[in-house]
Computed example of a mutant assay.
Amino acid sequence: MKTTLEELHTFILIVDKGSISAAAEDLNQTPSGVSRTLTRLEKKLGITLLRRTTRRLNLTNEGERFLQSAREVIQALENAEEAVGSKNVLSGTLRIDSASPFILHSVVPYLAEFQQLHPEIQLELFNSERYIDLIENRIDIAIRLGNLADSSLHAVSLGQSKRRLVASPRYLKARGSPKSVEDLQNHTLIGFTDPRELNHWPLKNNGSDRYPIKPHYAASSGETILHMARNGLGIACLGDFMTIKERQSGDLVPVLQGACVEQKEQIHAVYYKNAQLSLRAGVFIKFLKSKLKNAL
């Protein structure tokens, strides 16, 4: 092997930090020393990995491909180290990404218990309302709701969550409860700015099982919509994982239950197929799946 682990690690760090100087600071080295390591790696490979400009560094096409392979090598080494270490002590950083509502309602409540089981694992949580590139953002696991379209991702099912219409008692007292789907035309409806398909509510409607709405209020985050509904602004359609506490407390009540169609949103933990799943990532997925089994 021509390259060394030090060179791979330095290359990855330069990309992740965005500059040679930032990587040097993290490595406690001089920028010139880090630059020499990068140049040495490029000479060994016979390719240019990064284009240097006065303002930024840009990966070449070869650099992008090599970066992915370099990450896999480092990940494989970490897996090997974990495998030969104590089976009861997993360590390292685990980066998890999902939409804010799922993180808040279905991950955060279980973090304390997970930390007690695995105190040496450091969790970093990221909130992305839209799908992101896992490798570019150094995400180990992304938790995604709905249908998966990216065939490059390996998916592990965590369960499914039913969508239903809800409103606050205050709103229904002021405006009355809708008796039919047609009555929704006389009510204030809260929907999504994106994705638009979430504004097709699971209701029986003229032979169809979808009822397209035109929201009076719209938001990009389900968490914002939850707060709007809880504060009496209108009727919303949300996943059960978000509203279970509010429905149990009576802060939100189901609407038009007789007209609702059973529609469950799939929930998956995803990662790239060509990247080995670290032991700590596998442990977290198994842990979260066991918790959601009784919560969804």
Rank of each mutant, 00 (worst) to 15 (best):
Y110S: 01
L57E: 07
E120I: 08
T48A: 05
R40D: 15
R164E: 12
L111E: 10
V156S: 07
E82Y: 08
E136V: 06
K162E: 15
R95G: 10
E72K: 07
E62K: 11
L77P: 10
L172S: 01
A99R: 03
E129M: 13
N127M: 12
V84C: 01
S98D: 02
S32F: 11
H105V: 04
R175A: 13
L165H: 08
S161F: 10
E81W: 12
L123W: 08
T39F: 12
D150S: 07
S152L: 13
A155G: 04
R71I: 15
N137H: 14
V84A: 05
V34K: 00
L172Y: 02
T93W: 06
E78T: 02
S86Q: 06
V108Y: 09
P169Q: 04
A83L: 14
V89Q: 13
G92H: 04
I47E: 02
S91D: 02
R71D: 14
Y110L: 02
A112N: 08
S128Q: 13
S86I: 00
I132Y: 04
A83S: 12
R55S: 14
A80V: 04
V34C: 09
R175M: 13
S128C: 13
E62V: 05
I139V: 15
G46E: 03
R40M: 00
I139S: 14
S157I: 02
L45Q: 08
